[in-house]
Amino acid sequence: MKIAVFLPNWIGDAVMATPALRALRDEFSNAEITAIQKPYVAEVLNGLDLVDHSLDWVSEKSLKTQLQFLRQLRQERFDLAVLFPNSFRSACLSFLAGIPRRVGIQRDGRGWLLTDVLSAKDRSTPYPAMDEYLRIVAHLIGEESSDLQANSGLSRKMELAVTEADRQRWESFWNKQSAEFKRHPLICLNPGGAFGAAKHWPVAHFAELAQRLAGELQKSVLVVCGPAEKEEAIQIVEQANHPLVTSLADEPLHLGLTKAAIQQAELLVTTDSGPRHFAAPFDVPVVTLFGPTHIMWSETFYDRGQHLQLAMDCGPCQQRVCPLGHHRCMKDLSAARVFDAVVSLLGQQQSKVA
C-alpha cells in the first residue's frame, strides 16, 4: 500500500502532526508512506521513521511547473491520500493525481473532491489543530471519537529528531564559544514568527530578559533564529550587551541547527511560532508568549510548558498585523513578567528532580 500524506504548511503544525503520523505509521506498518510537503517544512521530520519518502510540494504557480508536479504524483500511483491541510488545492491535487481514496476535513468547498469527508467544526470556538490531525487518522483506523482525549488509542506525544549533520552543526557553533559561556546552563530565546508582525515580542523586551537571565541567574543565553529573524537576533544581543548572550545569526542558518540548540537547552522562551514546538519533543521546559492568537488553536497539552497572554478587550484577534495599531497584547507583556515565569518554571523542574 502506498500512502501520500499532505503535511501542514507551517513548521509548528508539522510538528503537531507527528502524533497523527505516528498513529498512521503504527496502523499501516507495512505501507510505503510519502510526505508531500512545502520545501521549508522538509527538515522537520528528518531523522524520524514516520515516513519513507518525501516530495516537495511546488509553490511556483506556473502551469508548466504544476503539471510536472501533478505528473510526478500520478506516477507514484498512491492508494490513499491523507490531507492534513484544509485547502482546496491539496484536495484537488490528490483528486487529479488519481488517488482512489482521499481523506480530509470538509472545508474550502472541497468535499466533492474527497472520498472520506469529515465534518468541519465550528471555528467560532477554538480547538487544537493537533486533535484535528489525530481525528483524520482516527477515522482511518476506526477509532473515531468526539473526545480524542478520552481515546486511549491515540497519543498527543510529539516527536522530533536531531540528525548527525545537525549535531555537527551544533558542535561547530559550540566550539567557537568562550569557556565562560560553556560553563553555564543554556536558555534559548526564539523571537519572531512567520505568521506576521503581531506575534512579535519587542526586541527591547527580549534584550532586557536576556540581560536578566545572564546577569541574575547566571545562564548562558542563545537567541535562535531563521533568516527572517536574523537582524532581530543581532539587535537583541547588541542591546543585551552581556558576554553570556549570543545568537546563531553568524552561523549558516538551518532548521536542524535550531532543533539541536533547543535540545541542549535548559529552557526555551519563545513567541507562538514554529520552533516553540521543538521544546516538547525534547522534553525541554518552555515559556510561550501569546499575543493575537488564541492559545487553544495550537494547544499541545505539554505539562512542562507555561503560556503567557494578557487579557485584552480587543483580542485575541487572530490578525497578522494589529488592526488598532497599538500592539499592546505583546508590548504590554513585560520582560519582568516573563522573567518571573522563567524562574517559576525552572523552580518547578528543580523541585521535581529533588
Rank of each mutant, 00 (worst) to 15 (best):
H139V: 02
R135E: 11
Q168C: 10
S155M: 05
R135K: 10
D166R: 07
S145G: 13
R156G: 11
W170A: 07
V203M: 07
V203K: 12
D166T: 09
S152Y: 05
A161D: 09
G193K: 00
T163P: 09
A197Q: 14
E171M: 12
G192Y: 00
G142S: 11
C188A: 15
A138G: 08
E143F: 00
L140R: 07
A161H: 08
N190K: 06
N151F: 01
E144F: 01
E143L: 12
A161G: 05
P202Q: 10
L154H: 00
S172Q: 14
N190W: 01
K199F: 06
T163F: 09
A165R: 12
Q177C: 08
H184A: 09
A161V: 03
S155E: 09
K176S: 13
W174K: 11
R156Q: 11
G192H: 01
K182Q: 15
E144K: 10
N151A: 12
A198Y: 02
S155R: 08
P185L: 07
L154V: 08
R183L: 11
A150S: 15
D147P: 05
M158I: 05
I136T: 10
S155C: 06
P185S: 14
G193F: 03
F181C: 02
A150P: 02
S152W: 03
S155T: 14
G196V: 09
D166G: 06
N190P: 02
G142W: 10
R156T: 10
F173Y: 15
K199G: 01
E143D: 08
I187C: 11
A194G: 13
K176H: 12
S155F: 04
P191Y: 02
C188P: 01
R169D: 10
K176M: 12
G153Y: 08
F173A: 08
G142N: 11
L160N: 01
C188L: 05
R183P: 03
A198I: 03
V162D: 06
A197S: 14
F181Q: 06
I141F: 05
L186G: 02
G196I: 08
A138T: 05
D147C: 10
H184N: 12
R156Y: 04
F195G: 01
G142E: 11
E180R: 02
W170L: 15
I187K: 00
F195Q: 00
F181V: 07
A150R: 14
T163L: 10
H184D: 01
W170F: 15
R167T: 14
A179G: 01
W170G: 03
G142R: 11
N190F: 04
L140W: 07
G192E: 00
L154R: 01
N175E: 15
S146P: 10
E171K: 13
S152V: 14
A197Y: 06
R135A: 15
L140Q: 06
G196F: 09
A138S: 14
D166C: 08
R169F: 04
L154M: 08
L154K: 00
A198E: 03
N175I: 06
L186K: 04
R167H: 12
R183T: 09
L154E: 02
E180Y: 01
P191N: 07
E180L: 03
F181G: 02
E143W: 06
V137E: 04
I187T: 10
P191T: 07
W174M: 06
N190L: 10
F173L: 15
